[in-house]
Amino acid sequence: MSSDTIHNVTVSMTVNGRGHTVSCQPRKLLSDALREDLHLTGTHVGCEHGACGACTVLVDGAAVRSCLLFAAQMNGADITTVEGMANPDGSLNTVQQAMQDCHGLQCGFCTPGIVVTLTAFLRDHPDPTDHEIRVAISGNLCRCTGYHGIVNAARQAARGEPASSVEAQSSESQSSESQKLESQS
């Protein structure tokens, strides 16, 4: 179908607490509308087939993949993106702070999806087991961290465990051991 035969639709939605009206083609993905029409580029597009989770946003409180939704479906919806996750004073929220404390991010590309997913998960599951944490982020792919720092961040956010990432290990894991060889002679 040639694009000139496609008529735009008008969508009114609340994003991060503010009302927006977007006029776009009905085929436009929510992820693209957020990024291109509202310039909220924190929502990242990593696969466009709902597998990587980088584009996760909250729609009416539920964590969903914005690459699997059309913007046209969002009329009247209340959407929160990663840009709306920080505390009202702009400081990092509990999950974001734990992610920094526990080195839960390196390149940062998957990070918005992780922050949104974990924030929603911990809201609904304030006292998760380690296994529940790992399953909760099983739909968010990260290529940098091996998930270790992310899982530690979720532990800290949920349980208030130590902030220092190197020491922030649960009882199931071992602490680091260190040995200094000042000179080998």
Partner: peptide, 17 residues
């Protein structure tokens, strides 16, 4: 790709020469 449930907690030791 590996996802979180398949990954263990990693344990680190350091030697510094």
């Amino acid at each position: 790709l590996p996802s979180a449930p398949e990954m263990p907690d990693f344990e680190y030791g350091h030697v510094e020469s």
